[in-house]
Write a protein that binds this DNA or RNA. Structure first.
Lengths: 109, 109
DNA sequence: ATTAATATTCGTAATTTTGCGAACAATAGA
DNA sequence: TCTATTGTTCGCAAAATTACGAATATTAAT
């Protein structure tokens, strides 16, 4: 309990950031929409996702902040898309953890 | 903005729950340890992870709550392990989202 | 029965998240 | 220029998260 000098790796920090962004049903729903459609407009989403527009906006900006999506102004609306580069990073990181976990053959008893 | 009657699917809720549990550096660090070792004792973890023991305990119980790990009393300590069944569920769910996202060939512009 | 070792729970405080409606931009079209 | 459409930001409140040390429980060993 003494060598607390080293905090977390940036890998761990980044992974937690991605996971946290995915940690809310509204945000999962947003991503499901973006996965099933070519793109999504705020308006379309607010038809489907049961929260106030301002709340939706907040969740969208959290996903943007985490780098998982991006928005393009397409007047009179805004078009949201997956940020493929960061999404790929996230997939790689999650896959790594899952691989390490499941590759560990120890069985708990 | 009218058909707000249907909330989220249980799939979405569950996925968010898993992701939320992964959404903190301490908890990622715990899982990294569990992935690299056959098992882990609270004491061992508190040597490595820079938080108070009580805080560590809290994070452990959140991972337990989410079903991602389990603890077995192995006196005089407690041995923590991955919950393989739920971990496998999580992997499947994440893989599904990643597949859907990356399988979508639309490129944002 | 005491003591030592281990981990959780309690009490508390600070911070962050979540959610809503109202107010505020920004732009296209009449 | 006025109006309608679309999203974001603001202001606020409620709830959840994070963190710590102190107190508590549990069991092994003496």
């Amino acid at each position: 309990m003494n060598n607390k000098e080293k905090a977390f790796t940036s890998e761990q920090e980044q992974m937690a950031r991605f996971a946290k962004a995915l940690g809310h049903p509204v945000r999962i729903a947003i991503l499901d929409l973006l996965a099933s459609q070519t793109c999504c407009y705020h308006g379309d989403m607010s038809e489907v996702i049961p929260v106030a527009k301002s709340t939706l906006s907040q969740h969208l900006s959290e996903l943007k902040e985490a780098g998982l999506i991006q928005g393009t102004l397409t007047l009179p609306s805004i078009k949201y898309c997956i940020n493929r580069e960061n999404w790929s990073r996230a997939r790689t990181m999650f896959a790594g953890l899952f691989r390490d976990i499941e590759g560990n053959s120890y069985v708990c008893r």
